[in-house]
Design a protein around this nucleic acid. Structure first.
Length: 107
DNA sequence: TCACTATATCAGC
DNA sequence: GCTGATATAGTGA
């Protein structure tokens, strides 16, 4: 499968998320001028540049974890939380503890 | 065209 | 606070 310009835009935006910060699908979609955060999620799901593209730093707008590598639960999905915790981003019951950790890609 | 999706938002309970 | 229905954009068959 070959990636489109849209997905290239998504990966470029995700790549510039600083360590220790997270962003949301909604903000990410707004950064690439896309009205549909679901399309962003699909692009990250087919992410061929993992882990160069830190797709684990993307969560939902309601500050819940969301999914990781196609899994919404299970050990693989749990790894996403573990990676973020290692960077200083903590979750409680699948919800981001500190909302100030959210990074705005538009800025 | 149809049916998905790592979402967002709203209505109802 | 939770479940579901709907909107919306991109992608593959």
């Amino acid at each position: 499968m070959q990636i489109s310009d849209f997905q290239e835009r998504v990966y470029r935006a995700v790549r510039r998320i600083p360590k220790g910060r997270v962003t949301t699908y909604k903000l990410l979609a707004a950064a690439i001028d896309c009205q549909s955060p679901r399309a962003v999620g699909q692009a990250l799901r087919h992410n061929p540049f993992a882990p160069e593209v830190p797709c684990h730093r993307v969560i939902r707008a309601d500050l819940t974890v969301g999914g990781f590598m196609g899994e919404r639960q299970g050990p693989v999905w749990r790894r996403k939380i573990d990676l973020l915790r290692r960077e200083g981003v903590f979750f409680r019951r699948g919800v981001l503890t500190d909302a100030a950790r959210v990074y705005n890609p538009i800025l």
